[in-house]
Design a protein around this nucleic acid. Structure first.
Lengths: 179, 179
DNA sequence: CAACATCTATCTATCGATAGACAGATTATT
DNA sequence: AATAATCTGTCTATCGATAGATAGATGTTG
């Protein structure tokens, strides 16, 4: 991956995570990194391609984080806390929420490729959680995984709206005690 | 409220709930109900005013629904199920999600007035849930309310992304048994 | 007549995308 | 090694479409 392409993606990720798909424009990205919008098209032919690559990178990062975590010597409880912490860090009040919560909310009218990749992000998280709850001997790992993933996503939306991190933590504390 | 104004709001709500704030344009709304975009401006001077009124109406509807439900003779468990059902109905696969989940996700870059009203929507729901869990003798009503609200919102995002209602129901079933 | 409601016409700003040119680096051919 | 061909990355300039918003004329209704 080219250096310029990465700068573009970094800027694009910030825009989407704060304002959504429509808030990311080639002109703004170009201006931010000091090139012309036509040069952005050189690296990413279409907006769809850019956003799609964005989600791909985002999911790859989650996967790396989760794989490392699963391979670690930490307890299942600590691993669950690590998952919660990943979401905690994704929420920056007044700046950004999780990329896939944003695009997930907007997914109905997004190009299919983007939608599919957002879906893949959620599947990655859900599968990992399910395995964790299974190892921990939870009675219904599938439900626990779904509830955990959903409540973290939703708590982020609520907290971002209220501009109040405590709105997120109320849910986070509950989840960290699920195992 | 004028008849035309209501038609505008109905159309606007559909647009926002499927594509977000940016997907709602005066031209589209006007075309859908057979008037000119300048006439939409007559009823709602700005886009912000329209969206803000939209959230106000949306919250008023929730409040009416919840007040009726709370005043009913149904059990606390049935009342909780009724809350879940409100969200269930708000999710129409491939068509729309909850207005305030969408605007909540996008809230960072939305005009403050809209953001505040989305916040009021969540407060309405959370207060009602808290009271319900209190009546039901739940150990920590505040947490239960937060988790319920968050997980319903998040489950809607996940289910909408996957285009799979079961993704919502996994969480819904869990919540309906919380009391 | 007065108000309410809608119209025509237009403005400025921005959007994603494309065409065509150019300099400089790299690679292939002689 | 020298030259030719190609690739890379950026530029300027422009396209048609769409955005929200406004002024002022026109119609409608009580």
């Amino acid at each position: 991956m080219n250096e310029t392409a990465e700068k573009i993606m970094d800027a694009a990720e910030r825009r989407v995570r704060s304002g959504g798909y429509g808030a990311m424009s080639f002109r703004d990205l170009a201006a931010e990194i000091g090139i012309k919008s036509s040069s952005v098209h050189y690296h990413f032919p279409t907006k769809e391609a850019l956003a799609s690559t964005l989600v791909e990178r985002y999911t790859a990062r989650l996967k790396t984080y989760l794989d490392d975590e699963m391979a670690s010597e930490r307890s299942t409880r600590e691993k669950l806390a690590a998952f919660v912490d990943y979401y905690r860090k994704a929420l920056e009040l007044d700046h950004s929420i999780c990329l896939c919560v944003m695009l997930g909310a907007e997914s109905i009218e997004l190009p299919v490729q983007i939608k599919e990749r957002v879906q893949a992000f959620y599947e990655t998280g859900e599968r990992w959680l399910e395995e964790l709850f299974e190892v921990a001997g939870k009675e219904d790992p599938r439900t626990a995984a779904a509830v955990t993933l959903a409540s973290l996503s939703g708590a982020m939306v609520v907290a971002s709206t209220a501009n109040d991190r405590e709105q997120f933590e109320k849910t986070a504390r509950f989840l960290e005690k699920l195992i």
